[in-house]
Design a binder for these strands. Structure first.
Lengths: 145, 145
DNA sequence: TAATAGACTACTATTTCCATAGACTTTATT
DNA sequence: AATAAAGTCTATGGAAATAGTAGTCTATTA
């Protein structure tokens, strides 16, 4: 299951993606609009900012805005920031590899091989879906391939 | 991430799948062989048995064996027993649907639509992979399609 | 009838997640 | 210069999920 952190992150990015024409959006406004606990959202935006996806400005008239085009922000990258590995077992993770406690011989492990397939199937979707795509899916059912 | 419960379940099923020629296997032996805490394994086997995947026999000479052919036990079913939903958001789950707390309008939710795609990609692998397939993958890299 | 082995329920410990608090820094405005 | 607005950063607390343990009960075999 996705953590709330990740859901909030995606919702925030979507909201900021829709806000590109306007001046930066303050945490408080974003929190109210998206019904996200303010202080929790604060931390999440921080992470996204430190990873380079958001631009922030302090002081009066400050706030948050996207630091990249919404079509260049892919869900896979967001999930990795907020939830960590995409794979369902650590030994099948590309970016967060860890040996499984339970595993004797990883090379011949059938579970691992299976969940590498699952990982690849998941990655195929997540590496192809940007924040712009998520926004596009909201209004109508038409996909732009 | 898969829970340990699920990993243990798969390992147990794989071990029992390799044991079909022999008399039923006792929990204690299975626990030792697969390095799974005995009492925890006991609960897991119970669940799998109550779901119809295992046959058990009490008393001396008793133990556990598969109640179906290993090629008819699919990972998707095991995961649903031990971990619940396959989808990463409850509103995208086929068997464990729940409304998302955060969601206003589910019908137009772009996040939901995306994670339905992820779910389908994951299901495609998990509904096609049986315990027999996992065993087959162990020994060599050859897949029988 | 004693020993073996699973069935079932209750409980405890550990970890992860979610959220809140508060003090600090930067920027704009007056 | 002072004040207010707004983000930065670290620490901490509580709740829920996960992992594991204990003990009693029931069935089967020898």
């Amino acid at each position: 299951m996705l953590s709330k952190k990740t859901k909030y992150a995606i919702k925030a990015l979507v909201a900021l993606g829709k806000n590109v024409q306007n001046p930066p959006m303050q945490i408080v406004r974003l929190a109210e609009q998206e019904m996200i606990p303010r202080k929790f959202l604060e931390q999440i935006l921080l992470d996204l900012r430190n990873a380079g996806y958001l631009y922030s400005k302090k002081g009066a008239g400050g706030g948050y805005s996207l630091n990249k085009d919404a079509k260049d922000i892919y869900l896979v990258d967001i999930l990795r920031i907020t939830d960590g590995p995409i794979a369902m077992v650590p030994c099948a993770s590309l970016k967060f590899y860890r040996k499984c406690d339970e595993c004797h011989d990883e090379v011949t492990c059938g579970i691992r091989k299976t969940f590498i397939e699952v990982r690849d199937a998941t990655l195929k979707v997540l590496t192809q879906t940007s924040i712009a795509d998520v926004i596009a899916k909201e209004s109508n059912g038409i996909l732009m391939d």
